[in-house]
């Protein structure tokens, strides 16, 4: 690898821009490809897939050049709306799993630094907070307040973003009325199908920490085993 290539990869990581290193395994030649780049349609698709599943892809087509595609993605982020009890467990577990965690809650008594040591707290109104976070395909959004005036504005921004996961805490009944409100706000059924509610895998969680496990498990599943 050329020293300049390493330099560029490190600069892209620093700038949080996704990039794929393509190595021709026969010649050792290397290229850096951004989303949309590629010599042909099939290579563009490989670049896109490597970034989406965040895993290396090796092409070994008969006769064709053997090329190895290694993605360098921006860091994962989890945006938790609602500085509630579950958020305390979830923020710690998500950080261990590699997420940069941002908690959004305009209620100062909830979003108190003492309750969330070391976690980034954003006390803006959820829609403003979410806009300022510039959500991308490496973001998971989890709403935990159950309060439409806090959850809904956050969801509206999340639904217009490329976030790979959107999930909402609340009973099936609460979730059904949430979907009705978002539908009235102009979101289509297909758009709303992205919302996972009630959020979390059904593992019989009881305590806030157990619910956090179930939420993080579902986020992980969505990240690592995306629907084909």
């Amino acid at each position: 690898m050329k020293a300049e290539t390493i330099e560029t990869v490190l600069a892209e990581i620093e700038a949080k821009r996704p990039v794929v290193l393509a190595t021709n395994l026969e010649t050792g030649d290397q290229r850096l490809l951004h989303p949309g780049d590629g010599e042909n349609e099939s290579e563009c698709a490989d670049v896109e897939r490597a970034l989406r599943v965040d895993a290396c892809i090796a092409t070994d087509a008969e006769g064709g050049p053997r090329v190895f595609y290694q993605p360098f993605n921006p860091p994962l982020r989890m945006i938790v709306v609602g500085a509630v009890h579950i958020a305390q467990s979830l923020s710690t577990m998500a950080a261990l799993t590699g997420y940069e965690v941002i908690i959004v809650d305009p209620r100062e008594s909830f979003a108190a630094a003492d309750r969330f040591p070391g976690v980034t707290l954003n006390l803006e109104w959820p829609d403003a907070a979410m806009e300022s976070l510039a959500l991308d395909q490496r973001c998971a959004v989890v709403t935990l307040t159950h309060d439409p005036k806090l959850d809904d504005p956050a969801l509206q921004v999340a639904l217009r973003s490329d976030a790979f996961f959107i999930g909402c805490l609340g009973s099936k009944k609460t979730h059904a009325s949430r979907l009705r409100r978002l539908c009235k706000a102009g979101f289509s059924e297909a758009e709303l199908a992205r919302v996972k509610g009630p959020v979390g895998l059904p593992i019989g969680s009881r305590s806030p920490a157990e619910i956090a496990v179930s939420v993080l498990a579902q986020v992980t599943e969505t990240l690592r085993k995306p629907a084909p």
């Binding site: 390493i6 490190l10 990581i13 993605n73 860091p75």
Partner: peptide, 28 residues
Amino acid sequence: MPDQSEIEVLVAARDWKAEGHGVALATV
């Protein structure tokens, strides 16, 4: 996302090269 230890490997490759060492990179 490359984890922190993978980034450290690339940083070492860059720095050692800049210091004038011979350097090789192995990738699974």
